[in-house]
Amino acid sequence: MILLIKKDLLIQKRSFLFLFIYGLFLFVLFNNPVFEEMIYIMGMIIGVYFFLITANMEDEKNKSEILLNSLPVSRSCIVLAKYLSVFVYICIGALFLGMAGLIFQLPVIPVTPRLLKATDLLAVIFLISIAVSIYFPLYFRFGASALRLFSVVFFLFFFFVPRWLFELYLAYEETEALLFLKDIIAQSPLLPAVVVLLTSFLLLTCSFLLSQRIYLRKEF
């Protein structure tokens, strides 16, 4: 499993450089009050998208499914590795964007974004879990090339979702339902994390089982 994840990282060494440079640009381009709160979430979503799509496209470009399925590794393991690799990409995204964010704290740089927070990670895990739970079964069924346009639009949607959700939150901040929700969170601060992680886990499990079923029947 770890070997397959390592393979997905090795075949896209340039993505690391891209992510770092992209991180720096992101803080400059989106240095405004509208996007500031969401900057890490949006950055990590695009980072994960880039790593994920590059790995899948490389597999497809080299017809490496035949290679992978000729190695002594089970098909379930190949599918599971793809799901777990997403968490590795989230960690890489957090690390690189976190580092970029730290660089911007230097007094010589006029732009000063906020630092990475745990809630950013939580939001990314939740949104990416929804996104890949839909994307992976389609990927294992149709392949990366067939989904190229779909995946761009699909992940762009998730790129802008945090901003829309935030605007929605601001618009309805004083409503009874949201005040009630805020009250509950104030009483048990860990509750959102538990709910988000549990929901993500459930979604990913269902999606994995579906992808596994598709991949076990696939012919190369």
Partner: peptide, 20 residues
């Protein structure tokens, strides 16, 4: 036909394949 990753070198191919 070749199914190994075109962007990698034989040394890198080994680091991917050997552990299996």
């Amino acid at each position: 036909e070749n199914h190994y990753y075109e962007e990698l070198t034989p040394i890198e191919i080994r680091s991917i394949i050997a552990p299996f």
